[in-house]
Design a protein around this nucleic acid. Structure first.
Lengths: 104, 104
DNA sequence: GCCATAGTTCGATAATAGTTGAACAGTCGG
DNA sequence: CCGACTGTTCAACTATTATCGAACTATGGC
């Protein structure tokens, strides 16, 4: 039976600006968001070398609960994607500004 | 002798995106930035009721070190202002997106 | 059914951030 | 020069966040 692995995602209208800004304020989370701007990834592909999967999962949770990413089951794996349209609708221009910022 | 009360401010080119996002991710700091978008304020005018001045000063420090605000001596007081042009130069569109976001 | 795989959740600990009163440093008016 | 005034800094405490191993859950292949 499928569906029991669904995780909660906030509605677009409920996204809180400070929560989104906080989720993006961590360098490793921001780097992941920049990679996700290229397209969805499986969770395993989201990770950086030498980072335990529980740590990655924690960052994914922070991003998901802020409404920055979507995390959906896909067979034995999960797809992680940027909620680009939702963010643009709720906070127009924000994601473009963040993604367009110069490399540090 | 004047000038001994100058506080350090980062150069525009040195502003770090995650630091700016973090500074803006606190509701009370974000509210202050929104008020400063209307124009500069003295420190005392920045404060909310029942907040000790040491707490306010701490938030001002976070915003100043991230490069979001400028805090300059002015006689016995200080003027706090938004570094709007500097932020626009370094992170185009970011401040507009944050200031244009819907009220929570 | 059984096992390997993918990833979350739990629990403990470490690190960072927020809050506050008290002490301190300049500035201005007498 | 002295006191009142504005605001920062310090030090201690609390609270939130990050990190990570271990336990756990669902899935798909055999």
């Amino acid at each position: 039976m499928a569906g029991s692995r669904e995780l909660p995602h906030p509605d677009t209208a409920d996204l809180v600006l400070t929560d989104v800004l906080f989720a993006l304020s961590d360098p490793s989370r921001l780097a992941l968001v920049q990679r996700l701007a290229q397209g969805p990834l499986e969770v395993a592909a989201c990770n950086q070398p030498h980072v335990p999967k529980s740590t990655l999962s924690h960052h994914l949770k922070t991003l998901r609960e802020a409404g920055v990413i979507r995390n959906v089951p896909h067979g034995r794996q999960r797809y992680v994607s940027l909620r680009r349209e939702d963010l643009d609708e709720r906070f127009p221009g924000l994601l473009d500004a963040v993604l367009g910022a110069p490399e540090q």
